[in-house]
Structures are given as C-alpha cells and as structure tokens.
C-alpha cells in the first residue's frame, strides 16, 4: 500500500480508526470567547484522525503567546516551551525521532519577531515539521501591542501615534528562506483549512501554514474582508495546483503575467482567457510563488491568495542526518567504545 502521507512513513499507524474526540483533553480551553483559535483547534482535532497515526507518536510543540496554549488541548504529547524557540526545540525532537509526527504551533509575534531566526533556519533546513503560524496581526497575550505583521500606522497601546515599522509578509519571508512548502488559509473556513493541513501533512520536510486568525479583543475584524459574503469573492484568490488562477463573481477576474514579468490582476475576456496564469505549486523556481505571495493589496487585503503557494521536493534534513549515521556505520562498523578510548597512540606501564 502506498503511503497516503509520505512524511509519516516511519510513524506507527493505528489499527482502529480515531475520532476528533480522541484528540480532546480534559483541560478547560482558556482562550477569549469568540477567539479564532477555537475554530482552528476544532478543525485540527477533526483532521488528525485522517492521518491514521498513533496519538502517542504525535507531538505538538509551541512557544509563547495565545496560540501557544494549543498543545494543552491536544491529547497527544506536547511541549509548551519559551518565546520564539518552538522551531528549535521541535527540530531537535524531529531529527532525533523520525517515528514522530511533529507539529509546531506559533503566532506572528512568536514566529516572526522573537523567534524569526529559528523560523527561517528551520525552513531552509527542511526538517520534517509542520508549522502552523496563527497570524492575527497583533500581540494578544501581552494585551494589544502591534506585531511584525501589523499594518504601518497601527494605533496600539505602545504606538499611540501609529506604528512605524513595515510589516513582514510571512509567505514572502518563508519563500525567501528556501521553504519547500508554503500555504495560507483562514480560521473560519474549516474545509479549506483542513485541505491545507492535509497537503502540509503529505509534504516531506518543513511545511509553513499561515492561518489568518481573528483576535476579537485587540484586532477584531482584521480579516473580515476575506470572510464577508459581500466582499470575499472579490478579495480572495483560491489557488489550486494546475488550475488557471481566477476569482471573483463568475470567476471573471484572473491573474496575468505582464510583459515585464510582474503579476497583475485583470478582467478575464474571451481574448485573454488562455493567458490566465496557471498555478504551478511545484515550479522549481520560487519567483512566481514569491510574486503571488505579494499580489495582495497590503492595506485592503484585496487579492489575497490562499491555498498552497509552493510545494517542492528537497532532501529532508532528518532523513539526511539519519543517512549519515547509517553511512558511517556501514563504512566503519558500529562504534566500539574500547577502541575509541584507546586511540592509535598508546603505551603500557607495568
């Protein structure tokens, strides 16, 4: 039987099917009522049985922030670590234990601000990790300061006259950091969220999934334009590999490549229909995926692509690491401690 989830090929499987209930813990969930995290948690708990792997071989690792409470609510192994360091801790775990399915749950502050360095290096190494980045464009747990994804001019407690720094685009950053899997989804769209989780779980290597998540206390409605029935069709671009990138009412709009190579959005007509860009998530070069990651209007979020922007194959770090151990053992035999300690140059005293 071929592996449905190649990245989990070494993870022991369950005999009996599981349900979402199996992944719930007895802990009281302590997010604010109405927080987008609830929807993500429910979607993940409902998705996990699909993987068909043993709960005890699944680990959720998080940093610090609202999203990082996530592991307490998953009936698997879990570590709620320190601010920004979850990718580093998960890298150690995943590279030491290839029989585990390791998930990182993080937020925009945790992953992109204090933990930015670990995130980019995890991505370039391509460790077998699935990173769920809950992006609410605000600091929630510290009560409402602007985050590295907040729009310029954001009025918060720490920026009463507006924030000054330009935000990160997490997907552009990830593509620039040599990520092999980059996707985006939205907390409120369970079906889409789960389809992206599925694709991430199938991917061998590091998968970065940005999840737009509403903070109803400090940044309510940040992604409303992508959710409101009246605006979402025009604002959202749903990417599907191998399909022309079209969106809007009656799929009347599309993405085109201009003469200068840049991507533009325009009306699809009978004449230009064949020129609509066909989404190729597996393109070897990152240029088009990068351009797609930047096609949204930063202020209005119009033309926000969701789905898998990029998914390419590259050797997986933990696999290569294990191979080096095997190669060394094949070439030199399993290490003999007595021989090692003695070395080559000894003398004997009687």
């Amino acid at each position: 039987m071929s592996e449905k989830f190649p990245s989990l090929k070494l993870v022991p499987k369950v005999e009996a099917p599981q349900s979402a209930k199996d992944f719930k813990t007895d802990q009281e969930v302590r997010w604010c009522p109405g927080c987008g995290d609830y929807a993500i948690l429910a979607a993940v708990q409902a998705f996990m049985p699909e993987l068909g792997i043993r709960r005890e071989n699944t680990v959720f690792v998080s940093g610090i922030g609202c999203s990082s409470r996530f592991p307490y609510y998953m009936n698997t192994y879990g570590v709620h670590s320190i601010h920004g360091r979850a990718p580093a801790i998960a890298t150690g775990l995943a590279s030491a234990r290839r029989d585990l399915s390791v998930w990182v749950v993080t937020g925009d502050g945790d992953a992109l601000s204090i933990g930015g360095n670990h995130l980019i290096h995890a991505l370039r190494r391509n460790v077998n990790l699935k990173i769920l980045l809950f992006n609410n464009r605000i600091y929630g747990l510290t009560k409402g300061q602007y985050s590295p994804t907040s729009e310029v001019g954001k009025i918060t407690k720490s920026t009463p006259m507006g924030s000054l720094d330009a935000p990160f685009n997490p997907l552009s950053l990830a593509i620039g950091a040599e990520a092999t899997f980059v996707a985006r989804t939205i907390d409120s769209d369970r079906q889409h969220l789960q389809s992206v989780l599925r694709a991430a779980a199938e991917h061998e290597g590091t998968a970065l999934v940005e999840i737009y998540q509403n903070c109803n206390i400090f940044n309510d409605g940040a992604f409303e334009v992508l959710k409101e029935p009246g605006t979402r069709d025009e604002a959202l671009i749903r990417l599907e590999h191998g399909q022309p990138i079209r969106f809007g009412a009656d799929r009347a709009r599309g993405v085109f490549r201009g003469a200068d190579g840049e991507l533009t959005v325009g009306a699809v007509t009978a004449e230009n229909e064949s020129a609509v860009l066909v989404h190729d998530a597996h393109a070897a070069g990152p240029a088009t995926a990068f351009a797609l990651s930047r096609i949204a209007d930063a202020d209005t979020l119009h033309h926000t692509p969701i789905g898998v922007l990029r998914e390419v194959r590259r050797p997986v770090y933990d696999e290569l690491m294990a191979e080096q151990l095997d190669t060394a053992t094949a070439e030199r035999g399993p290490g003999d401690l007595a021989t090692l300690l003695a070395g080559a140059d000894t003398w004997t005293v009687d």
Binding site: A88, T91, L93, A94, H121, T327, T329, E331, G335
Partner: peptide, 29 residues
C-alpha cells in the same frame, strides 16, 4: 563519531543549539 549513533546539530545560534538538545531530550536522547 556518527557510527556511535551520535547526532550533531550545528544550530543557527546558541539558543537553537540548546533548544534542539532539549527537544531531543524530550524524545529520549
């Protein structure tokens, strides 16, 4: 000494170095 099953991870910084070691310890190393 990889033939002793030794994994060595040159991290991006000191913090990641110990973070990975702690993650591996959680996994039984």
């Amino acid at each position: 000494h990889k033939n002793f099953g030794v994994r060595t991870f040159q991290a991006e910084d000191e913090i990641a170095g110990i973070g990975a070691a702690l993650g591996a310890a959680f996994g039984g190393a």
